[in-house]
Nucleic acid binder design. Structure first.
Lengths: 109, 109
DNA sequence: CGGTATCCTTCTTGATACTG
DNA sequence: CAGTATCAAGAAGGATACCG
């Protein structure tokens, strides 16, 4: 997408694709999550997309990646403070979306 | 996009494409805006996209369309109360995006 | 003025297989 | 276990032209 000078669009460029929010959501539920654990939670995501999204979230410091040099390998993902800072904002969107959903569906009874 | 059961994703399906927020933004600035006026404000948008977006926003009752049967034709677009209800939520995203932008750019001085 | 119709490009996402 | 490589598909968006 285009590099936006609007903070709202800037935010959406970071968290607005298909899998970013579901990933953040699942990371919110636990302190720490492993790669395949996360993959199982996100029904239908491919390795490519999961890795790509995690890398991007990492670049923006929303997610922390910790790799243990063990065998078999072990990598843990968790939210940073920056990532957690999204929570109140997402709650606003959540409420608006909920109301909107009701309005969009109530006449179709 | 997939029809989501998550209110956040539901909201983003409505307002999350390339032009929806810019359109809503420009409609916020004035009480009432005409089609071509809106088009000129949104640099680079095509008729197709503008019409498509406006129709979709109308379907979700975020935007009101009033057509005058004059010659030449005249159509006015404005935000509904539902559309205006997005404002506080977008402010939250705005602030988060602004902070994020700073964090993403401060080390590149 | 306020759109439609048609065609085309590009960006995002997915499927499948394989590796240190 | 936690990925990468390669190839293919689909959806979103754009270009250009035309209409009531």
């Amino acid at each position: 997408m285009y590099d936006s000078d609007c903070p709202v669009l800037y935010a959406l460029n970071i968290i607005g694709q298909k899998w970013k929010l579901p990933i953040l959501w699942h990371l919110m539920l636990k302190d720490v999550t492993r790669y395949n654990e996360l993959k199982r939670s996100l029904n239908g995501i491919t390795n490519i997309m999961l890795t790509k999204c995690l890398r991007e979230l990492e670049e923006h410091s929303l997610v922390k990646r910790v790799e243990y040099d063990t065998k078999p390998p072990k990598v843990e993902y968790s939210l940073t403070e920056r990532g957690k800072a999204l929570l109140p904002t997402l709650n606003g969107l959540y409420k608006w979306g909920e109301e909107q959903y009701k309005l969009d569906h109530e006449e179709i009874d």
